[in-house]
Structures are given as C-alpha cells and as structure tokens.
Computed example of a mutant assay.
Amino acid sequence: MEPIYGETGSVEGWLDNGIFYNLSGSAMLFLKNEHIYSFQNGEHKGRFLNGLIRDHAGTVVGFMNKAIGGPMKPLKSLLPLRPLKSLTPLKPITQTPPIKPLDTLSWSKINLSDFIG
C-alpha cells in the first residue's frame, strides 16, 4: 500500500494494485487505464497520471511519493499505520470518461478525503 497525500501533506488514502482505499481500509475507487472510477456506481471521478490525482477540471486533488509536475507539494506528514484492507467489491459498469481537460498547476477545491470517499 502506497500513501496518497492531500494538499496539506497529510496521508488521506492509500493505493494498492490500482485500488484506492480510504483511511479505514475500505476499497472506494479503482483505476481503469488512467481513469478513476467509484466502486459504488461506476461514476468517473478523475484521472491518475504521473503520481497525481486530478479532478474533472484538471486540478490536483492528491499526490503520491514520486509525483511529477503539478503544483508545489507540501512537506509530507509522518505515515500513519496502514489499515487492514477490506474485501474488494466487484467492479461496476463504468461511465464514459469526460473529455480530458488541460492539466493545471493548481490544487483542486475538492478535498482528497472527500474525493476518495
């Protein structure tokens, strides 16, 4: 499990084998190519590329340790204990992704914890 950091540098989620987990260890989102979808209803949530999580506006919601590009990253907090992972739900039928926006150097107004769920 790799930590996912939010705009303040705190760990707000985890990524493991293309599955995004919240801090409690529940599988909330999954990757399909570079697109991020919800397990709940297959809703397209954003994109993951170069270690950056971007929303539909192209702004950055969160980042990984080896992220490239995007806005200036904050100092990272100490890692919390990794949670026990829940069982991974079945993947639903997914939405067609929206047209790709231009990537920005800005932070999103969406909080990473809210984005993950």
Rank of each mutant, 00 (worst) to 15 (best):
M1D: 09
E2D: 15
E2C: 12
P3G: 13
I4C: 10
I4S: 09
Y5S: 14
G6C: 11
G6K: 11
E7L: 08
T8S: 15
S10L: 15
S10A: 15
S10V: 14
V11T: 12
E12Q: 14
G13K: 10
L15R: 02
L15D: 08
L15E: 13
D16E: 15
G18I: 13
G18S: 08
I19V: 15
N22P: 02
L23K: 13
G25F: 11
S26T: 10
S26D: 06
M28W: 01
M28T: 15
L29Q: 02
L29T: 08
F30Y: 05
H35T: 00
H35S: 09
H35W: 05
H35K: 04
I36Y: 04
I36Q: 01
S38G: 05
Q40F: 07
N41W: 01
G42D: 04
G42C: 03
E43N: 05
K45P: 06
R47Q: 07
R47T: 01
R47L: 01
R47M: 04
F48V: 03
N50P: 06
G51K: 01
L52W: 05
I53W: 00
I53T: 06
R54P: 00
D55E: 08
H56I: 07
H56L: 11
A57C: 04
G58D: 02
G58P: 01
G58A: 03
T59G: 02
T59F: 04
T59P: 00
V60I: 01
V60F: 00
V60E: 00
G62T: 05
F63N: 00
F63P: 01
N65W: 06
N65G: 05
A67F: 05
I68E: 15
I68V: 11
I68S: 14
I68N: 13
I68D: 15
G69D: 10
G69Y: 05
G70I: 04
P71M: 01
P71N: 03
K73A: 03
K73C: 00
L75T: 02
K76Y: 04
S77A: 09
L79K: 13
P80G: 08
P80A: 08
L81G: 10
R82I: 14
P83D: 04
P83S: 09
L84A: 10
K85A: 11
S86Y: 10
L87V: 14
L87R: 12
P92W: 01
P92G: 06
P92H: 02
P92C: 04
T94A: 05
Q95L: 12
T96I: 14
T96V: 14
T96G: 03
P97E: 09
P97H: 04
P98A: 11
I99R: 13
K100D: 15
K100C: 07
P101V: 09
P101R: 06
D103N: 08
S106G: 02
W107F: 10
S108M: 13
K109T: 03
I110N: 11
I110D: 06
I110L: 15
I110Y: 07
N111I: 04
N111Y: 08
L112I: 15
L112G: 08
S113M: 09
D114N: 10
D114I: 02
F115G: 11
F115Y: 12
I116P: 06
G117S: 07
